[in-house]
Amino acid sequence: MSGNSADSTGGLEVVLRKAGRTKIRYPARLLDDDGVRVVVHADWASPRVRDFGFVRFEPGDVFTEHYWRDRWYAVKEVRDARGGLKGWYCDITRPAVRSGGELVVEDLDLDLWRSADGTAVLRLDEDEFADSGLLTSDPEAAAAALAALDELELLARDGGFTALLG
């Protein structure tokens, strides 16, 4: 591990913003910060189960989250309480910003899911993205977001995220 932690225990708070407002914030343990990529470890941040139909996030699940300062996405490896791999949930975001004890990312609505066995690669929330107005309010950001989703889908279909996350 090469980065500086927010405190002596490696604590960091992840702040997910959407449309200018904080959507959620949760504690995480900083694993690495090499100046470009920030890697944190976090427990599922809700006391309730969230069933997406293709995966269930539930208390006890553990996320290893990879954020970049120069890429328009975050990749989250999801494991159950026993350590079994569920898959990867990817958020399309603006590049991450780390300031003091916070890691701030802005969610741009688009998401991608890749199951552990690779049989399911799903583009998610394209309707929310279209409804967000980003295509007209910030066409450059919208183009970057769509390109990021395409890039992640190709990686997911071409053997997964091993090279990206390694």
Rank of each mutant, 00 (worst) to 15 (best):
S137G: 00
R29S: 04
D109H: 15
P139K: 05
D91Y: 09
G3W: 13
L152A: 05
D70E: 14
N4M: 12
R56G: 08
C90T: 11
L16Y: 00
V36R: 15
V105P: 01
L165C: 12
G53L: 08
V105T: 14
Y26F: 15
W113C: 10
D150V: 06
L134K: 07
T9I: 06
K23H: 15
L134W: 02
G11V: 02
D150K: 07
R79P: 12
R37T: 15
V97A: 13
D61L: 05
Y67R: 01
V62D: 03
D150I: 04
F161L: 08
V38N: 08
F63A: 10
D109L: 05
L152G: 01
W44T: 08
S132C: 12
L124E: 15
R114E: 10
A156I: 05
D131K: 12
T119V: 10
L164Q: 06
A143F: 01
L108I: 04
L155R: 13
D107Y: 00
G118M: 14
R50D: 09
R69D: 01
R17W: 06
G166E: 10
R94D: 13
D150H: 11
D7F: 05
K76E: 03
A141Q: 12
V104S: 10
R82M: 00
P27T: 06
D70L: 02
G83T: 02
V105W: 00
V75Q: 02
G160A: 03
F54M: 02
L124D: 10
L122A: 02
A163G: 07
E13V: 15
D109M: 08
L103I: 05
L108E: 13
A120Y: 00
A144Y: 12
A156P: 01
H66D: 04
G84V: 00
V49L: 11
P27W: 06
V75R: 03
D51H: 01
